[in-house]
Simulated assay, not measured.
Amino acid sequence: MPEIVIETRPHDLGGGFEVGRVLPFRKHRSVGPFVFFDRMGPHELAAPIPPERDVRPHPHIGLSTVTYLFEGEMTHRDSLGYKQLIQPGELNWMTAGSGISHSERFDGMRPAGGRLDGIQAWVALPEEFEEIKPSFVHYNEFELPVMTEEGIWARLIAGSAFELESPVTVHSPLFYLHMEVTAGKRVPLPQDYAERAVYINSGKLQVKGQTYVAGQMLVFAKDSLPVVQALENASLMLLGGEPLGPRHIWWNFVSSRKERIEQAKEDWKAGKIPLPPDDHVEFIPLPETIA
């Protein structure tokens, strides 16, 4: 059985754009180095998409953001000067390190609207890498390795699993996959990691006679060998890795040290974290409280 089952909770990012938040959870803060996991959708965005639905420039420290879409598209802009369209199946990986800001806007979808669905995860950085220089990389769907066998298709987004390795540089052992499984098939789980989880995008899974449904994350204990079976065609995210130790999370800041988060707050208020060069007219101010 899973060690714990985490339910998706609704969370409003502002402007009426709601996500399903899974991590962090009060009883289970992280899975390996994954400290944050948001389901963005599925949403039917009516035309024209108002600018209020965009995610305006905001800061990060001490983590890497991992954006992966199933449907729709978004435009990433960051304070390093990168502008990148994100489309389904692609990997958008931004390492904040010592500090970066970015925005996510619906430029391409704005006139006609459409369906949006995807996941944004945050991967915490090991202490020795928390203050590295910010960086950004993007890989299209054809650059990411794929595993296929009867009834199973999987794309390795980051890390290593099933004798595959993603091209993106990671700073600690981890795996992150998008997997499609047909009804009746067993779901393979990497065994070489301390912490592992399965998030159900759609469909149903069964473990020891118990049924689990879309929106649930099943977290499995170290060294467990669960038999996870698809009761119907299922879309899944598999994630995990080696834990990094406790992390403090406040708003968009992640750090092993509380005082570093306090410094990041002051830096954002003082304008010391630059804005994206072509998206600097507005930004999200530091919140007074966190819901």
Rank of each mutant, 00 (worst) to 15 (best):
K208W: 09
I290Y: 10
M74N: 02
T8P: 02
T67W: 02
D107S: 09
L236D: 06
G113A: 04
E143I: 02
T182L: 14
W251R: 01
P111I: 02
A214G: 12
P33W: 05
W268I: 00
R257N: 09
Q206K: 14
K27G: 11
P50K: 03
P190R: 11
K27Q: 12
E149T: 14
H102L: 09
A270Y: 05
D117C: 08
P33V: 01
F34V: 10
E150R: 13
Q84P: 08
W93H: 13
A96M: 06
P33K: 07
S255F: 05
I284W: 02
F34L: 08
P2W: 05
L244Y: 10
P277T: 00
S98F: 00
D279I: 00
I249H: 06
T65Y: 06
M1C: 09
E7W: 11
D117H: 15
D223R: 12
G113N: 05
V137T: 15
E104H: 04
I200P: 07
V146Q: 14
H280D: 15
V66W: 04
M94W: 05
Y176I: 07
P246E: 12
P24C: 04
S166K: 10
E149H: 07
T182K: 15
K258E: 12
R155K: 14
V22A: 10
V219F: 08
S79P: 06
L45W: 01
A47Q: 08
I6V: 13
G184P: 08
A112F: 10
K27P: 03
D223I: 04
D192L: 11
K269P: 00
V181K: 11
P276M: 04
R56K: 14
M1H: 14
H60S: 03
V5D: 09
L91Y: 11
P134L: 00
A47E: 09
N252M: 03
F283E: 11
V31P: 01
L218Y: 06
P243I: 05
V213M: 11
W268E: 04
H102S: 06
V228T: 05
Y212N: 06
I249G: 01
Y68N: 05
L125V: 07
K208E: 15
K265P: 01
E18M: 12
Q84D: 07
L205G: 07
E130P: 08
G151D: 11
R26M: 12
I273F: 09
S202A: 15
S101P: 00
D117V: 02
W250H: 09
L91P: 07
H28R: 12
V219L: 04
Y212T: 06
Q120I: 01
P226M: 03
A121E: 03
K258M: 13
P50I: 03
V31S: 05
P24L: 07
K27D: 15
E259V: 11
G240E: 07
